[in-house]
Design a protein around this nucleic acid. Sequence first.
DNA 1: GTTATATATCGTAATATTGCAATATTATTT
DNA 2: AAATAATATTGCAATATTACGATATATAAC
Lengths: 105, 105
Amino acid sequence: MGASKTDHFSILHNQMASIAKALGHPARIAIVEFLAKTDACICTDIVDILPLSQPTVSQHLKELKSAGIIQGTVEGNAICYCLNQEVLSMLKEFIGKLANVKNCC
Amino acid sequence: MGASKTDHFSILHNQMASIAKALGHPARIAIVEFLAKTDACICTDIVDILPLSQPTVSQHLKELKSAGIIQGTVEGNAICYCLNQEVLSMLKEFIGKLANVKNCC
DNA sequence: GTTATATATCGTAATATTGCAATATTATTT
DNA sequence: AAATAATATTGCAATATTACGATATATAAC
């Protein structure tokens, strides 16, 4: 095996999992935090702050994009990436529900 | 390669990534949602609601546990799993910061 | 103590992820 | 149009994940 049995789970569960999975790498956490903290959202800036090669960063950006967490708009020569609030709000709401439960043990 | 360059990222970034990564599978999302929704937290119940074998579920529980998202206490014959609010609150806070940014593009 | 029940671990096959060098693409500048 | 700059894609090697059958362990019940 090696592939998840996605067919057996609900759309919501698969969606939440894919969003969480996309955030499941320190480089991608660093990217979204950078996008949240700075106004600059040019790809080069992201490559500059990460200890990874340009192709690797490009790959991480692609994963965040395909999970819907970020979006990129062409700006002349460069590409401006920014956070997608809609998707992040969904995750926030889901985590919020988990984080308000009293422990039973 | 195949291994993340964890050494090059901050402890916070690695911690957030590992929590998010542990939630990055529909089975594990289903588990935490189940734990949040029901009072029952016996391992057998979790195995019953998932379309996966007992060893596979046990493995998923182990991953959630090692990320600190759940904890298990022995209860006679069985094991009672429940959510760890401290860790979930950390994630909630982090996601919350991301989900309050105005888009620049 | 033997049997049943609940959970974990081992071993292994299939697949996915991570990272980068090399190269391609696309837009800008000269 | 050639050179430059920014980003993406390809190809590949190393490692990680997913899933499960078989088996181990540990407590409970008889």
